[in-house]
Design a protein around this nucleic acid. Structure first.
Length: 933
RNA sequence: GCGGGGGUGGCGGAGCCUGGUCAAACGCGCAGGACUGAGACUCCUGUGGUAAGUACCUGCAAGGGUUCAAAUCCCUUCUCCCGCACCA
């Protein structure tokens, strides 16, 4: 492929010309794509988002906008550190993975070894991949302004983030509170998905149990439940007879819970002290008092399904509604010791459910469950719970909650019990989990967690109304933003490990990595100046940012306190004022509910509304041959291979044209090759045009092509404006290629005419295939770079509906002939053509003017019966909506002789005097009749 | 559980928001033909059914409804996928 060879050439020329480093002139457009996280090599999926961003940037430049499209790198958080840690610790999997990454870029084994050993330093990891990402992006022809590049670990960025948190604190949304986290006991640290064994495939979440206190001896037996409303139907308590229970001092009370639960509780409550252990079996047959529900005495009974390592290890029994409990009791009736007691227990039905009496009993019987170890009990529980949750109502046994739907009651009961100190919260993991190193994972409650509090009403309200004003594409995500604003509550914003910025109000914490990247687009506007003037961290005081971003403070005073020249401060302020707000942020939908929501919210909290973001566009994922790319499947195509293997322009064309932004791109080698041959065809056409002399359109078919081109351009512009890039490419590229083929068949010296539209066509293609466009722009002898050429205007008179319709008539005529020839299965020598009789045109006109009413004017025609039929068919076609210009059918047909000969090897004859089968009478306007001989 | 998005031909996937121009864009696959020493290249043609013709019939997950008219609007059912807080 020849065109690959000049991609690097044009990239170099753009760089020398500083083509994508904007000045401050004219109407601006500020586009951002989130900076990448530099912990590994990119694959072609990552490239989709940046390619789309680049197409937007390039298109806006053609429209004469002064575009800023910058890029930086994200290094905050724990991943980069943990890579270094793992390599230091000799973790084989990580080392192997990073060897592979390095190998993509460095084939020399010795050098690769050196690079790998440098990775024990986090900074080396971040810098290595940042450098490579820049190379890869450049090799794809991205029009990024690299002069504003930075990473989130730099001191100046830290200052900026600190300032952001001070301003958030001003808005009173930085809070300190307690917070449950998934926690490793051995490592004494919160753990994330990455740290948990199989955490990526089998997620662990935090479940909040209601721990209900049942009066027992000097304190309480505390049973945990996810369905606190069922406490009204409790009939007994279950303990595991083989487990150990322990009296535990919790704040001022004494709780009897399992030993395991007591340990967990130590991480969730401040004061927890252990006392004597008791074997579960020793407690059987004693009773507790249900002080919250029904004031009954409930016996303690044995059940093997009670897991002492799950929640409190104590369960209360609701045999009417919980299949486990029903079956547990049923099993126990056969027991020598407790059989009688179990037999005396009657289920208490507390939920009315149409069609059910004692739901748990019925579902166990229906499903053929025979003992409490039956695995079908899980399913039965889930099924019944779902049924009750959606359709159930609490009945009169539930005192003041009677008559309320289950799905509305849950939290109310919980809150009320908690308030009365009859219940507490107990956190448990959603499944048993371990860290990768094998230590136990539980839920701990951190006391002094810092949060950003997204709950204030003023904040949500402004976010809702602003998102409605923003440009969002695809529009369906607008709703997701609303939902996400509603759902956001308190969110932890500081962690105790990872790279990033120190939390300014307690420097033992580090700002969490999503919270440090919400308004950094503002930083792009000034980072170049900071870099040039070599400003130091000490100079980047809050006063400086207040001045630059808000225009707050006295210039000389700020200059004095920061030691930054007044001129420079003014420049920074001007730079920010010029570029802000961020006109469009482009990324993937996964970020809507977190990053993008914070992006909007933080701008709202910190800046005046003139600086709030104006638009967000999103593109879906990219998969390969129908499946997701992943290292484990071994189907990853590294982004760095693209330029060599396929060429940047082919990659860009495929990624942009094979799917709309809101659908998944499927990278299929077959389709990529198909796109390649189209691209080759385009190059061939341009090559021919570059070597031809331009000529004016002289024939009908010339006018047709020009018209087709500008019609396509017109539609393309509309699609591009709406970020519908796929549709744009279909019109300006794929359909037009087909038109060119038709044109070449019909016209003499086609290349000469194509040359007259070639330059405009190249501009229209330049956002997607900039290198090829640049090359042929140059070969056509055009000045400057096509990358910054103004978007072509539709020339006056170029769009010619008449010409397009005439040609459609020709194409239709060929289609019809083909069909007829196929049906006769004969090879004709002569093709006789007849246009419709005059009265049919009259009839057509009549219907076009008078619609259905035309039927009333039948007496205008000689053969009324035939006329009626014809009129009816026109009415059915609704010809008045077709807007067809009148054309000279005969004149056009007469010019088709050569082409007919070429296509069918037959002679085209137009002679109404020779019509052996009376075909003329069958012809209709625009659809001539044919007779084959 | 909470929230969101889908189900169209052999396949991927347009179209549905703004109902008619939709047997359904574009592409892949498949079939026939041209070219060729040969072809996995390229080009042409065809690809639901019926029909010496411009049309008709069937059809867009299933069922029902609104309408002169529904892939498109409304309701019900079935079914698939994605995100969910410390994680970038």
């Amino acid at each position: 492929m020849e065109w690959k060879s000049y991609e690097a050439k044009w990239q170099a020329k753009w760089k020398t010309a500083k083509l994508f480093v904007p000045n401050k002139k004219g109407k601006k457009f500020f586009l951002t794509v989130p900076y990448p996280y530099t912990s590994g090599a990119f694959h072609i999926g990552h490239g989709r988002t940046y390619t789309t961003g680049d197409v937007i940037a390039r298109y806006k430049r053609h429209q004469g906008l002064n575009v800023l499209f910058p890029m930086a790198f994200h290094i905050s958080g724990s991943p980069i550190i943990s890579i270094s840690d793992k390599i230091k610790a000799g973790d084989k999997k990580t080392i192997e993975m990073y060897k592979q990454y390095i190998h993509l870029y460095e084939k020399d084994k010795k050098k690769a070894e050196q690079i790998l050993s440098s990775f024990t330093e986090p900074k080396a990891v971040a810098d290595f991949f940042a450098t490579k990402i820049i190379q890869d992006f450049q090799s794809l022809g991205y029009s990024i302004d690299w002069t504003r590049q930075f990473n989130t670990g730099e001191p100046s960025y830290n200052s900026f983030v600190e300032w952001q948190f001070m301003r958030l604190k001003d808005r009173d949304v930085i809070k300190k509170d307690k917070h449950p986290v998934i926690f490793s006991i051995k490592e004494a640290q919160p753990v994330g998905e990455d740290d948990i064994k199989d955490g990526d495939t089998d997620k662990v979440s935090i479940q909040e149990f209601t721990a209900i206190k049942f009066k027992f001896k000097q304190g309480f037996l505390v049973a945990a439940t996810l369905r606190p409303e069922t406490v009204f139907g409790a009939t007994n308590l279950w303990l595991n007879p083989d487990a150990d229970y322990v009296w535990t001092k919790v704040e001022k009370e004494e709780w009897l819970i399992s030993v395991q639960a007591a340990e967990k509780l130590g991480y969730q409550k401040h004061e927890v002290k252990l006392a004597e252990k008791i074997k579960g079996s020793k407690l059987m047959g004693q009773s507790v008092k249900n002080i919250v529900g029904n004031e009954r005495e409930l016996p303690i009974l044995p059940a093997s399904f009670v897991d002492p390592d799950h929640a409190t290890g104590v369960v209360y029994s609701v045999p009417a509604h919980a299949p486990y409990d029903w079956q547990g009791l049923a099993d126990l009736r056969k027991d020598r010791k407790f059989g009688e007691l179990a037999g005396s227990i009657e289920p208490i039905v507390i939920i009315d459910l149409v069609g059910w009496k004692v739901p748990a009993q019925e579902i166990c019987e229906n499903m053929g469950i025979t003992n409490q170890n039956d695995s079908k009990l899980e399913e039965a529980t889930a099924k019944l719970y779902k049924e009750e949750f959606y359709k159930g109502k609490l009945n009169s046994k539930c005192s003041k909650f009677a008559g309320i739907d289950i799905n509305k009651i849950k939290d109310k009961v919980k809150l009320k019990l908690k308030k009365a100190r009859h219940a507490d919260i107990f956190f448990e993991t959603s499944r048993k989990a371990q860290t990768r190193s094998g230590s136990k994972v539980i839920v701990a409650v951190l006391k002094d967690q810092w949060f950003i509090d997204y709950s204030p009403a003023w904040w949500k309200k402004q976010a809702h109304s602003w998102i409605d004003k923003m440009f969002i594409y695809p529009d369906k995500y607008r709703k997701l933003f609303h939902d996400s604003f509603d759902w956001l509550d308190k969110r932890p914003c500081a962690r105790n490990k990872g790279l990033g910025t120190r939390f300014p109000f307690d420097t033992s914490w580090v700002i969490e990595s999503l919270s440090d990247s919400t308004i950094y687009m503002a930083f792009y506007t000034i980072v170049g100046l900071i870099r040039q003037a070599k400003l130091k961290k000490e100079q980047l005081k809050p006063e400086l940012f207040d001045f630059v971003f808000f225009g707050k403070g006295n210039l000389t005073a700020v200059s004095k306190t920061t030691g930054v020249a007044a001129e420079l401060l003014k420049d920074m302020r001007a730079e920010f004022e010029y570029w802000y707000p961020n006109d469009l942020r482009h990324t993937a939908p996964a970020h809507v509910s977190n990053h993008l929501s914070f992006f909007v919210l933080h701008h709202i909290a910190i800046f005046p509304d003139t600086e709030w973001p104006r638009g967000i566009s999103l593109n879906e994922l990219l998969i390969r041959e129908g499946v997701k790319m992943s290292k484990s499947k071994g189907n990853v195509i590294p982004l760095t291979d693209i330029a060599n293997k396929y060429g940047a322009d082919l990659y860009r064309l495929y990624v942009i044209s094979s799917a709309d932004l809101n659908t998944v791109v499927d990278w299929k080698e077959k389709d990529v090759l198909a796109a390649r041959s189209k691209l080759a065809r385009f190059v061939e056409i341009m090559e021919a045009a570059a070597n031809a002399e331009a000529r004016k359109p002289i024939s009908q078919i010339d006018r047709w092509l020009v018209s087709r081109f500008y019609s396509a351009l017109d539609k393309t512009t509309e699609h591009m404006d709406k970020t519908r890039f796929r549709d744009a490419m279909i019109d300006i590229f794929f359909k037009l290629l087909n038109d060119i083929s038709w044109f070449e068949k019909r016209a003499d010296k086609p290349a000469e005419l194509i040359r007259t539209i070639a330059a405009d066509w190249l501009i229209a293609m330049a956002p997607v295939i900039p290198h090829i466009s640049e090359e042929y722009w140059n070969r056509l002898g055009q000045n400057g770079f096509v990358s910054v050429a103004p978007w072509p205007k539709i020339k006056k008179g170029a769009i010619n509906k008449q010409a397009e319709f005439e040609e459609k008539f020709v194409q239709q005529f060929f289609d019809d002939m083909r069909r007829v020839i196929k049906m006769t299965a004969k090879k004709p020598k002569k093709i006789l053509v007849y246009t419709a009789l005059d009265w049919k045109y009259k009839a057509l006109k009549l219907v076009a003017n008078e619609k259905q009413a035309a039927m009333k004017k039948l007496d205008k025609f000689d053969n009324k019966k035939l006329a009626a039929k014809t009129l009816q068919s026109f009415i059915k076609q609704r010809v008045w909506e077709l807007d067809r210009p009148r054309i000279d059918e005969l004149g056009i047909l007469r010019q088709l002789n050569n082409m007919v000969k070429h296509e069918f090897g037959a002679e085209l004859v137009i002679d109404d005097n020779y019509d052996p089968l009376d075909k003329k009478s069958k012809a209709m306007p625009f659809r001539p009749a044919v007779y084959l001989e």
